[in-house]
Amino acid sequence: MSEHVLAAEGGIEVGVHPEVSFLGLTLNIDTVISTAIAAAIVVGLGFYLRAKATTGVPTGGQLLFEAVTHQIERQVEDNVGIRTAPFVVPLALALFFFILIANWMTLLPHAFDEYLKPPTADVNLTFALAFFVIILVHATGLRKRGMGYFRHFAQPTPALLPINIIEEIVRPFTLALRLFGNIFAGTVMLSIIALLPEFVYWLPASAWKLFELAIGLIQAVIFAVLTIVYFGFATGGQEEEGAH
């Protein structure tokens, strides 16, 4: 119903995906395709880097990757301790590059109605990532601290128990919806810009896509850093809670 209202106002559809049914599941096929493309790019870059990586004079791409890896390692060291959870480094690294490339798929031309939107503009990807991360966080906390892990729900005082529990429950949703909201808003904005006449449309569209690049980078950084911070909380690296 709301779709019809929007269509009546500006002729744009929001959050509509072409769907297919597969093994009884309803799949947003555009999201699946764009995710697969983003994944292929990340994996391809990874193998390219692995092939070109050298101890000699490094290429720019290698330096960039090493800089990102170094930053993530430092974050993990500060928040969790590399020894406590060494697997957080590749996890955060994969999250960062995957989300970054996915966000930057907004660069794809969208002269057609059914263009490939960034997969992060679909809650399916962001929820998948967020729940995966949060489940891993809790699992790691349980493994490192045993039953004592549950004690941190009652800190600093038992009176905060309900708030802490609510916060833990809310976390995957904030993590997922922050990313989704930012990128989704960008696609909506592009749809609205696309209503402009064709001879001026390119200018705000290009400007907005450049802006989207920055937003995509920031959101990827935030997702990766928050992942590390949550691992830090769970493993007792830092007891105080951060703001969302």
């Binding site: 947003n28 697969a36 994996v43 890896t69 929820f127 995966f132």
Partner: peptide, 24 residues
């Protein structure tokens, strides 16, 4: 989210596995 979430998770797991295993 609908069923896509499972596919998305699988795709990300593949990416994670490749980076974890072959790149890092």
């Amino acid at each position: 989210p609908n069923g896509t979430i499972i596919v998305e998770l699988v795709i990300f797991l593949v990416v994670l596995w490749v980076i974890w295993r072959y790149v890092v």
